[in-house]
Deep mutational scan, measured.
Amino acid sequence: MQIFVKTLTGKTITLEVEPSDTIENVKAKIQDKEGIPPDQQRSIFAGKQLEDGRTLSDYNIQKESTLHLVLR
Rank of each mutant, 00 (worst) to 15 (best):
residue 1 M to K: 03
residue 1 M to R: 03
residue 2 Q to L: 14
residue 2 Q to Y: 13
residue 2 Q to C: 09
residue 2 Q to E: 09
residue 3 I to G: 01
residue 3 I to L: 05
residue 3 I to T: 00
residue 3 I to N: 02
residue 4 F to R: 06
residue 4 F to W: 05
residue 4 F to Y: 13
residue 5 V to T: 00
residue 5 V to G: 01
residue 5 V to M: 03
residue 5 V to C: 03
residue 5 V to H: 00
residue 6 K to H: 15
residue 6 K to E: 07
residue 6 K to F: 06
residue 6 K to V: 14
residue 7 T to Q: 05
residue 7 T to D: 06
residue 7 T to R: 04
residue 7 T to P: 02
residue 7 T to I: 14
residue 8 L to M: 13
residue 8 L to T: 13
residue 8 L to R: 10
residue 8 L to H: 14
residue 8 L to G: 10
residue 9 T to L: 10
residue 9 T to V: 07
residue 9 T to N: 12
residue 9 T to K: 11
residue 9 T to M: 11
residue 10 G to R: 03
residue 10 G to S: 02
residue 10 G to N: 05
residue 10 G to C: 07
residue 10 G to T: 02
residue 10 G to I: 02
residue 11 K to H: 10
residue 11 K to R: 11
residue 11 K to E: 09
residue 11 K to V: 10
residue 13 I to V: 07
residue 13 I to P: 00
residue 13 I to M: 04
residue 13 I to Y: 07
residue 14 T to G: 05
residue 14 T to R: 10
residue 14 T to Y: 07
residue 14 T to V: 13
residue 14 T to H: 05
residue 15 L to P: 00
residue 15 L to K: 00
residue 15 L to E: 00
residue 15 L to W: 00
residue 15 L to I: 12
residue 16 E to Q: 11
residue 16 E to T: 12
residue 16 E to K: 09
residue 16 E to M: 13
residue 17 V to D: 00
residue 17 V to M: 03
residue 17 V to H: 00
residue 17 V to P: 00
residue 17 V to A: 04
residue 17 V to R: 00
residue 18 E to V: 13
residue 18 E to Q: 12
residue 18 E to P: 02
residue 18 E to M: 14
residue 18 E to C: 10
residue 18 E to N: 12
residue 19 P to V: 08
residue 19 P to K: 07
residue 19 P to F: 06
residue 19 P to T: 08
residue 19 P to W: 05
residue 19 P to R: 06
residue 19 P to H: 05
residue 20 S to G: 11
residue 20 S to D: 11
residue 20 S to H: 11
residue 20 S to F: 09
residue 21 D to T: 09
residue 21 D to C: 04
residue 21 D to P: 01
residue 22 T to H: 02
residue 22 T to C: 02
residue 23 I to L: 08
residue 23 I to Y: 03
residue 23 I to H: 01
residue 23 I to W: 11
residue 24 E to Q: 13
residue 24 E to S: 12
residue 24 E to W: 15
residue 24 E to I: 09
residue 24 E to F: 14
residue 25 N to H: 11
residue 25 N to S: 14
residue 25 N to A: 13
residue 25 N to T: 13
residue 25 N to V: 14
residue 25 N to F: 11
residue 25 N to G: 08
residue 26 V to A: 00
residue 26 V to S: 00
residue 26 V to R: 02
residue 26 V to H: 00
residue 26 V to K: 00
residue 26 V to M: 06
residue 26 V to I: 12
residue 27 K to D: 01
residue 27 K to F: 10
residue 27 K to W: 10
residue 27 K to P: 00
residue 27 K to Q: 04
residue 27 K to E: 03
residue 27 K to T: 05
residue 27 K to A: 07
residue 27 K to G: 03
residue 28 A to M: 14
residue 28 A to P: 00
residue 28 A to N: 11
residue 29 K to E: 01
residue 29 K to Q: 07
residue 29 K to F: 04
residue 29 K to M: 12
residue 29 K to N: 02
residue 30 I to D: 01
residue 30 I to N: 01
residue 30 I to M: 04
residue 30 I to Q: 01
residue 30 I to A: 06
residue 30 I to W: 02
residue 30 I to P: 00
residue 31 Q to M: 13
residue 31 Q to R: 12
residue 31 Q to W: 15
residue 31 Q to L: 12
residue 31 Q to H: 14
residue 32 D to H: 10
residue 32 D to S: 11
residue 32 D to G: 08
residue 32 D to R: 11
residue 33 K to T: 10
residue 33 K to P: 07
residue 33 K to R: 10
residue 33 K to D: 07
residue 33 K to N: 07
residue 33 K to Y: 11
residue 33 K to V: 13
residue 34 E to I: 15
residue 34 E to W: 15
residue 34 E to R: 04
residue 34 E to T: 15
residue 35 G to V: 03
residue 35 G to E: 04
residue 35 G to P: 05
residue 35 G to Q: 06
residue 35 G to S: 06
residue 35 G to L: 05
residue 35 G to W: 04
residue 35 G to Y: 04
residue 36 I to W: 14
residue 36 I to Y: 13
residue 36 I to E: 06
residue 36 I to A: 07
residue 36 I to F: 11
residue 37 P to N: 08
residue 37 P to I: 08
residue 37 P to T: 08
residue 37 P to L: 08
residue 38 P to N: 09
residue 38 P to R: 13
residue 38 P to C: 09
residue 38 P to G: 09
residue 38 P to L: 15
residue 39 D to M: 08
residue 39 D to C: 12
residue 39 D to K: 09
residue 39 D to F: 09
residue 39 D to A: 11
residue 39 D to E: 13
residue 40 Q to I: 12
residue 40 Q to A: 11
residue 40 Q to V: 11
residue 40 Q to H: 13
residue 40 Q to G: 10
residue 40 Q to L: 12
residue 41 Q to N: 07
residue 41 Q to C: 11
residue 41 Q to M: 15
residue 41 Q to A: 10
residue 41 Q to D: 06
residue 42 R to H: 15
residue 42 R to V: 15
residue 42 R to W: 15
residue 42 R to C: 15
residue 43 S to T: 15
residue 43 S to K: 06
residue 43 S to D: 08
residue 43 S to Q: 13
residue 43 S to E: 10
residue 43 S to M: 15
residue 43 S to C: 15
residue 44 I to Y: 15
residue 44 I to C: 15
residue 44 I to K: 03
residue 45 F to S: 07
residue 45 F to W: 13
residue 45 F to C: 10
residue 45 F to P: 04
residue 45 F to Q: 05
residue 45 F to N: 05
residue 46 A to D: 13
residue 46 A to T: 04
residue 47 G to D: 09
residue 47 G to E: 08
residue 47 G to R: 01
residue 47 G to Y: 05
residue 48 K to L: 13
residue 48 K to D: 07
residue 48 K to N: 10
residue 48 K to S: 09
residue 49 Q to V: 15
residue 50 L to M: 06
residue 50 L to E: 01
residue 50 L to F: 03
residue 50 L to D: 03
residue 50 L to K: 01
residue 50 L to G: 01
residue 51 E to D: 10
residue 51 E to I: 09
residue 51 E to A: 07
residue 51 E to P: 02
residue 51 E to S: 06
residue 51 E to L: 11
residue 52 D to V: 06
residue 52 D to K: 02
residue 52 D to T: 05
residue 52 D to Y: 04
residue 53 G to C: 07
residue 53 G to Q: 11
residue 53 G to N: 13
residue 53 G to Y: 12
residue 53 G to V: 07
residue 53 G to T: 09
residue 53 G to L: 08
residue 54 R to Q: 08
residue 54 R to L: 11
residue 54 R to P: 03
residue 55 T to W: 03
residue 55 T to S: 09
residue 55 T to H: 05
residue 55 T to V: 05
residue 55 T to E: 01
residue 55 T to D: 02
residue 55 T to K: 10
residue 56 L to Y: 03
residue 56 L to G: 01
residue 56 L to D: 02
residue 56 L to N: 01
residue 57 S to H: 08
residue 57 S to A: 14
residue 57 S to F: 10
residue 57 S to T: 06
residue 57 S to I: 07
residue 58 D to G: 02
residue 58 D to L: 00
residue 58 D to Y: 14
residue 58 D to V: 01
residue 59 Y to Q: 03
residue 59 Y to R: 00
residue 59 Y to A: 03
residue 59 Y to T: 00
residue 59 Y to K: 01
residue 60 N to M: 06
residue 60 N to H: 09
residue 60 N to C: 05
residue 61 I to Q: 02
residue 61 I to K: 01
residue 61 I to C: 03
residue 61 I to N: 01
residue 61 I to L: 03
residue 62 Q to H: 11
residue 62 Q to F: 08
residue 62 Q to V: 12
residue 63 K to Q: 12
residue 63 K to L: 05
residue 63 K to M: 10
residue 63 K to D: 13
residue 63 K to V: 08
residue 64 E to C: 10
residue 64 E to I: 01
residue 64 E to D: 14
residue 64 E to G: 15
residue 65 S to W: 04
residue 65 S to Q: 11
residue 65 S to G: 06
residue 65 S to T: 08
residue 66 T to D: 02
residue 66 T to R: 04
residue 66 T to M: 08
residue 66 T to F: 07
residue 66 T to N: 03
residue 66 T to H: 15
residue 66 T to L: 09
residue 66 T to V: 13
residue 67 L to M: 06
residue 67 L to F: 02
residue 67 L to I: 14
residue 67 L to K: 00
residue 68 H to Q: 11
residue 68 H to N: 07
residue 68 H to S: 06
residue 68 H to T: 12
residue 68 H to K: 06
residue 68 H to M: 11
residue 68 H to L: 15
residue 69 L to K: 02
residue 69 L to H: 03
residue 69 L to A: 01
residue 69 L to N: 02
residue 69 L to I: 09
residue 70 V to G: 06
residue 70 V to H: 08
residue 71 L to P: 11
residue 71 L to W: 09
residue 71 L to C: 07
residue 71 L to I: 12
residue 71 L to A: 11
residue 71 L to Y: 10
residue 72 R to A: 13
residue 72 R to H: 12
residue 72 R to Q: 11
residue 72 R to K: 13
